[in-house]
Amino acid sequence: MAKPPGREVLLEFQRVGSYMKATAMDPETMTEVSVVGPVNHSQELLRRTVIAKLEYVLARKAGAPPR
């Protein structure tokens, strides 16, 4: 999945022990979500997962049914 169309998404990756925490934020709505996964998983997988979670949360806030 890509970022929501026409939206800027801020991403942050932080290693916490044997886990990697990925955080995505939509600066327009100040909505922030996070996911964690093992350090040995790809950063691309975490990026796609956290962006999908952000899209889900934004859709719920807008009252739209999730995809």
Results as ranks from 00 to 15, higher is better:
1 M>T: 01
1 M>D: 09
2 A>D: 02
3 K>H: 10
6 G>S: 00
7 R>W: 02
8 E>A: 08
8 E>Y: 00
8 E>S: 14
8 E>G: 09
9 V>N: 01
10 L>I: 14
11 L>C: 07
11 L>M: 06
11 L>G: 10
12 E>L: 06
12 E>D: 14
12 E>W: 02
15 R>P: 10
15 R>L: 11
16 V>A: 12
16 V>M: 08
16 V>Y: 11
18 S>T: 15
18 S>E: 11
19 Y>S: 07
19 Y>L: 11
20 M>D: 03
20 M>K: 03
21 K>V: 09
21 K>R: 14
21 K>Q: 12
22 A>V: 09
22 A>L: 10
23 T>R: 12
23 T>G: 12
23 T>D: 07
24 A>P: 05
25 M>A: 05
25 M>H: 06
26 D>W: 00
26 D>C: 04
26 D>A: 05
27 P>G: 01
28 E>W: 08
28 E>P: 02
28 E>L: 08
29 T>F: 00
29 T>L: 06
30 M>K: 12
30 M>Q: 13
30 M>H: 12
30 M>C: 13
31 T>S: 07
31 T>G: 04
33 V>I: 12
33 V>M: 04
34 S>F: 05
34 S>L: 06
35 V>T: 10
36 V>F: 12
38 P>T: 01
38 P>A: 05
39 V>S: 09
39 V>E: 05
41 H>M: 14
41 H>N: 12
43 Q>C: 09
43 Q>Y: 15
44 E>W: 15
45 L>R: 03
45 L>A: 13
46 L>E: 12
46 L>H: 15
47 R>Q: 15
47 R>G: 11
48 R>F: 14
48 R>A: 14
48 R>S: 13
49 T>C: 00
49 T>P: 00
50 V>L: 15
51 I>N: 01
52 A>D: 15
52 A>K: 10
52 A>Q: 15
54 L>A: 10
54 L>K: 08
55 E>Y: 04
56 Y>L: 15
56 Y>T: 09
57 V>N: 05
57 V>R: 04
58 L>M: 09
58 L>G: 06
58 L>P: 08
59 A>Q: 15
59 A>G: 11
60 R>H: 14
61 K>Q: 08
61 K>G: 10
62 A>D: 04
62 A>V: 07
62 A>T: 07
62 A>N: 02
63 G>F: 02
63 G>A: 03
64 A>S: 12
64 A>W: 08
64 A>M: 11
64 A>G: 02
64 A>E: 09
65 P>K: 12
65 P>I: 08
66 P>H: 01
67 R>E: 04
